[in-house]
Write a protein that binds this DNA or RNA. Structure first.
Lengths: 202, 202
DNA sequence: CATTTAATGTTAACATTGTCAACATATATT
DNA sequence: AATATATGTTGACAATGTTAACATTAAATG
């Protein structure tokens, strides 16, 4: 019963491992593939062990979302702030990185930027949190920089950021959800989009 | 048993009413709110009557999607083709109508343009179908017209259409999924976006 | 019209899943 | 050492999609 080598009664780090494994499962197999039974089985615990660390399955997923945001923040912010590149170059690079993430991790992308738990998400992360964590904050900074350099028009950067984010998010969404049947033209569409944006923002 | 007034054994038009009621339920209460039991109960039949008309719940939803596309086509195409307005005006009007639909019917919008049944959807409606039904076809036509009038640059209109659609779709998605916390600035963002697009496309 | 066949609808049952209550065991506290 | 708290387990339940077996109506066929 107390065979410590194979399965100690207390797992030790279950909460963190639940989050981590859930994130990996969602990433690889999609949100629908996650069942508490499957998840806990992979960690060698019983089905209901989850409820000692999370109020519900939903609460667990919300934890995964929070973790995902932190991950994204670490991924994107350095690109935005790398001053070895010009503003325009950073603009182009950030869009590419953002799209790459969406394409390589469509399930995670949908979880973070889709409707999932929209209502409940608002409680754990308000506007400022998400803005900061998803790089929208950094985007606003970049656009402000661009305004100072005279590259783009001096308009409320919040509105500019929303417009730019929407464009790239729309492209990512249509792509990973299978509505743009021109994945081969992907690169052409992206470059054209960045061009249209930079020109239109002037 | 054969009280025709209250409940005839054969419903008569069950398939169509299933689609219609399912569409209304999805529209008002969201996709998750649909259960076969609830749906059939509203129509006064037993839970499994669905299976005489659809292979599965998924097949039913795919039918709803098809119905939704047809509906959208009827809604959008006239706007695209109303030549009493200039090309630029039509461009602006179509975007507004598109956004309005998304905001007024977020659940339907997500169903039609989200990931739902992405794989299976490809079987019932290939590129041409969706392109035509969602107005992308009309958008391409409008952009071609704009090119002929010299309003925008002569670039592959397919790529232009993808870029424009992505921008508006991104705006709609971020809005209805609660990621843009500036619904009050909505109108400003939209007008600015159209401006950026028209300028950038030149 | 009578009979057969196909279409449509119903009931009973099952597997899966999230969740809760009651119980068990390990760790922390006093 | 004794108690309390945290953590994990087992058994059960309700909801849901689905299937099989049966019932009833409409259509087809002679």
């Amino acid at each position: 019963m107390k065979d410590k080598k194979t399965s100690p009664y207390h797992h030790g780090n279950l909460k963190e491992e639940l989050l981590q494994t859930a994130l990996e499962m969602i990433d690889k197999e999609g949100l629908d593939a996650i069942t508490l039974r499957e998840l806990t089985q992979r960690l060698g615990t019983s089905r209901t062990a989850v409820y000692r660390h999370f109020a519900s399955k939903e609460a667990l997923i919300l934890g995964v979302i929070e973790k995902g945001y932190e991950h994204l923040n670490l991924l994107f912010t350095p690109i935005f702030e790398d001053r070895t590149y010009s503003v325009a170059e950073r603009f182009e690079r950030m869009g590419r990185e953002y799209l790459n993430f969406a394409i390589e991790h469509p399930n995670l992308y949908r979880l973070l930027f889709g409707e999932m738990y929209r209502k409940e998400r608002e409680e754990i992360c308000d506007y400022k949190d998400e803005t900061q964590a998803t790089g929208l904050y950094a985007l606003i900074g970049l656009l402000t920089e661009a305004q100072e350099e005279g590259i783009i028009a001096e308009v409320n950067p919040l509105i500019q950021a929303a417009m730019v984010w929407a464009s790239i998010h729309g492209l990512a969404s249509l792509l990973i959800d299978g509505h743009l049947m021109m994945s081969d033209n992907m690169e052409a569409i992206y470059e054209y989009s960045i061009g249209v944006l930079l020109k239109g923002l002037q």
